[in-house]
Design a binder for these strands. Structure first.
Lengths: 159, 159
DNA sequence: TTTTTGGTTCGGTAACTTCCGAACTAAATA
DNA sequence: TATTTAGTTCGGAAGTTACCGAACCAAAAA
């Protein structure tokens, strides 16, 4: 059940990326990558320990965190006490929904900034006013793009 | 030169947001917000110390970091040794360019994941293949959206 | 009933981040 | 020439994060 050198390399590489994009601890990010790069049969707790070379307690904590965040899921087999972990089937949709939430946040922030500047720094705002507007329009287009994509994915996954 | 309660509230509120979205230390994030919410005349080193209630050394370090990151700039007045700090006129454009870089990164990551899964987990990939494709299309549309917005902003700012 | 399996929980620690104070510097002023 | 101004730089303290080992627990197996 050990990993090919190629997979090990990807786990580290994409792991670093996921630390920032998903705001996860290094170990959690690596586990998440393993789940995404693994077949539907999933991995057991022990396999994850071996692949990550991390301790039992750390694996337990981070697995439970990922479960709670809905990034991974597990299934069991009859007459087998072990849990088999894999990426949540909805993980890309969940990712997009997280993006949607943060875009909405960002739109609010931009609105607060432009509102403040247009009332308290009006002479500054007059000169640069168009740029914040273009920025906001960009954010709104992106929000639409996200909503449409989420809708399309829902359509596929609910059929 | 002290701040209105409204501005103080915004500095903290948007500051927390900027810590994550711009990957800045708390103090750096707050200084950046101050710059964005301030008139074109900018603020001096001492004013920033008073508003943030931070030490000289911390303000110095974080100001230089923000300058290096091109998020803020300063100007001087003849016969006045002080520097006047303000948000970089290009800060929204710079923000979008950072977004563009990370989108391009993300596209690469998604490509690596789908490539790996389609060769090593082909049976898994067959069932979920459409979703990663939609995801990638979403990223490409977003990249276009970003590039167009950056172009529009450049047009305004270079005129 | 004892042991093994498949974990969880807790206390601590090592490493990293963030900030501060004190000493320093270079230019301007007295 | 001495002092003030406008910062910079360095060593370290305090707080936070990420991980580990050891003790623990509940269910199943021996």
């Amino acid at each position: 059940m050990s990993c090919s050198p190629e997979k090990i390399k990807l786990i580290e590489e994409i792991g670093v990326h996921f630390e920032k994009t998903h705001q996860l601890a290094p170990l959690a990010a690596r586990i998440y990558v393993i789940m995404i790069l693994s077949p539907k049969e999933g991995h057991t707790f022990d396999e994850i320990m071996t692949i990550t070379e991390a301790s039992k307690s750390s694996v337990s904590t981070q697995l439970n965190l990922l479960l709670q965040l809905n990034k991974i899921e597990y299934f069991t087999k009859p007459g087998d006490r072990k849990r088999y972990f894999r990426g949540n089937k909805m993980y890309l949709k969940n990712t997009l929904e997280t993006y949607l939430a943060s875009i909405s946040e960002e739109i609010k922030v931009v609105e607060k900034i432009t509102e403040f500047n247009s009332t308290y720094n009006s002479e500054k705002y007059k000169k640069t006013g168009e740029v914040p507007l273009l920025f906001k329009e960009y954010l709104l287009r992106q929000k639409e793009n996200l909503k449409n994509t989420i809708a399309k994915i829902s359509e596929i996954q609910n059929k």
